[in-house]
Nucleic acid binder design. Sequence first.
DNA 1: GAACTGTGTTGAGGCAGGTTAACAATCCTG
DNA 2: CAGGATTGTTAACCTGCCTCAACACAGTTC
Lengths: 183, 183
Amino acid sequence: MDIWKRFGEKEVSHSMAHYLQAVAALKSDKGHARVVDIADHLGVSKSGVTSMLRSLQSRGLVTHERYGAVELTPSGQRLASRTESNRRVLTMFLSEILGVPEAVASEDACMIEHLVSPEVSIELLRLTTFVRSKHPVAAQFRDAYKASPRSCAEHAPGACELCGETCLHESLVCEPKDGGAEV
Amino acid sequence: MDIWKRFGEKEVSHSMAHYLQAVAALKSDKGHARVVDIADHLGVSKSGVTSMLRSLQSRGLVTHERYGAVELTPSGQRLASRTESNRRVLTMFLSEILGVPEAVASEDACMIEHLVSPEVSIELLRLTTFVRSKHPVAAQFRDAYKASPRSCAEHAPGACELCGETCLHESLVCEPKDGGAEV
DNA sequence: GAACTGTGTTGAGGCAGGTTAACAATCCTG
DNA sequence: CAGGATTGTTAACCTGCCTCAACACAGTTC
């Protein structure tokens, strides 16, 4: 059972995804993406950019000749825009449907944008669209959900279908850290 | 703007999360977690385990003396069970609410289980519980959602609120790969 | 056209997380 | 208790992704 090892075999790593997005963003903002722009945009060194570009080029995601322009290949472009869309869908879902704070939504979206599969993204978009829609059931749903219980403790006793023997909610809640005399 | 760099500064990495989960699982299955068990469980070499244990120990997540037993510390235990709960919540949400195939749900859950913040997990559990519940609105919702449009193309023309200038759905869909003469 | 400034590349090095090979410790059994 | 099998550690090495320092190229400016 080693699904977990496929983490390292993803099409692109977290870093790569952000390099591709940076190139796409710079292209559309300034019309071109130079090494120094990418470096500034991502907050890494120019040499880091150079070596990452080599790596991206070897995967056929960008083109880049010495001292020359950086361009996304079609697959690079596709990956960049898919990642970007994933981020938007995730952020929207997390903040508007789940209702977590903007900052949390953005951060979580950034962490997982390159990891969710297309199937999940598509369904997430569909769910988000539907819940936000004018459909009468969607409106009812939003109200009823707002009023729904916040923890297993508030469920009918012993009726927590999701949790097995132990309450999932409890292990999700952040206990105070060890030395924590936080206010 | 470099949220993206915090990826590497997470409490634990993907690998670490799985080592912790492995230790927890072995402890509860066999009563003990030895190096070789962890190695088998995760499909890595024993030496890899030894060095990862050193790293986890330095972070205060496990205890392990030479040739001795491996134990989770309280923080290690907490992290392991939070990750495990995240996985369960995510899998449930992805497969039952979004309706993606089991295999996809499991894989995606595994990829992101250690990355989602507690706030998101908690709300995800709440949403999942509510949608699955006997609440009359939940039942209506499930039906209406099942019938909801699958793509922007089916939305009222030009009324795709989520997508900005370009349709998100289009960029999420997997186009056929370059050389693809797949059946 | 020499000098200065900005841009890009190379090289050496660090840390994480894996590998294999060799060896050390422990345990099991005749 | 000797030998062999199992278990655990170390050492050397690899890749990914980053850093800094040094150098190469390009574009002003005088």
